[in-house]
């Protein structure tokens, strides 16, 4: 009774505003909820469908476990501590791989971007290495660095390196010549030009590189852990396969998705904070 009254009271003004010159324009909260709600419709429907077909035995549950089973698996891991152990080691690997890969890419990329000589010297070689599918390095890294952490971190940093490198070089080379001229007109030295114009101007491209580097990093951490690891989310994939536990595989896939999303979200936040000055379409969309 109360609910239906509430609905009635709410409906009335809406009907009036559509009739007479929309009064409520600046109300952002409902539209945000509407946005999130709309984007949730499809996933929720799919999960319900999935749960339905497994609950009623339409598909075989030993091949496709129900979403609730997957959630239970993750919850169990959280309780017995293996979630933190496996997730932690995976994060550790990707963190160091990302750091080393980006550092190397920034160092080489800025050298190649700034100097024509360095470009003719290094770039062809780097491009040639880029043509090698990075996973082809795995046997060699294992041979050289053993089966422990160094070979995995190295593989991940190779994956992170290329997108960051390409974007750093591209970013530096596409800095507006006109802005550099302003700096020159004020008599800035080469070092000052780099610090005050080239660095901030190439920041957008650099951050795009970091984000795609991180994406590749997640791809490579899976590859590294699939091939000879005794810990990590990638190891759980193999474990699930060998012990015929699809819920283990799916649970670690879900964890990969969640962690990948969170880390990318973090970088995206940094990106929009650092680049708040950028004149972009989505900044005017509101």
């Amino acid at each position: 009774m109360a609910i239906s009254q509430g609905q009635h009271v709410e409906k009335k003004p809406i009907f009036e505003t559509t009739k007479g010159k929309q009064k409520k324009v600046g109300k952002t909260m409902p539209s945000v909820f509407g946005h999130v709600g709309l984007s949730l419709v499809l996933p929720v429907l799919l999960i319900l469908l999935w749960e339905g077909v497994t609950r009623f035995q339409i598909v075989e549950t030993h091949l496709l476990p129900a979403p609730t089973v997957i959630v239970e698996t993750i919850a169990d891991w959280a309780v017995d501590g293996s979630l933190w152990q496996h997730g932690g080691i995976t994060l550790y690997r990707i963190f160091w791989g990302f750091i080393w890969g980006s550092l190397a890419a920034v160092a080489l990329g800025s050298l190649v971007g700034m100097s024509n000589k360095a470009e003719t010297m290094f770039d062809p070689l780097i491009q040639a290495f880029r043509a090698i599918p990075s996973l082809a390095w795995v046997p060699l890294f294992i041979l050289w660095l053993g089966i422990g952490e160094p070979s995995k971190v190295t593989l991940i940093s190779v994956g992170v390196f290329f997108p960051v490198y390409l974007n750093v070089v591209g970013g530096i080379q596409s800095v507006d010549r006109k802005l550099i001229e302003v700096g020159k007109a004020y008599g800035l030295s080469s070092f000052q030009l780099v610090r005050r114009i080239i660095l901030p101007a190439s920041m957008p491209s650099f951050l795009v590189g970091l984000r795609s580097g991180l994406g590749l990093g997640w791809m490579f951490v899976v590859a590294a852990e699939l091939m000879g690891a005794s810990q990590g989310l990638g190891y759980l994939l193999i474990l699930g396969q060998n012990t015929l536990q699809p819920e283990v595989i799916l649970a670690s896939i879900v964890l990969f998705a969640i962690l990948g999303k969170i880390t990318d979200y973090g970088l995206k936040k940094i990106q929009s904070r650092v680049l708040h000055w950028q004149d972009r379409i989505d900044s005017s969309k509101g």
Binding site: K178, E181, V182, K184, A185, G187, I197, P200, W277, Q278
Partner: peptide, 19 residues
């Protein structure tokens, strides 16, 4: 070369967008 005694105003504003 450039000189501190000269100020230049270009056809476009050429402002640094991050400042």
């Amino acid at each position: 070369g450039t000189s501190k005694e000269l100020g230049v105003i270009f056809q476009e504003p050429r402002l640094m967008p991050w400042l």
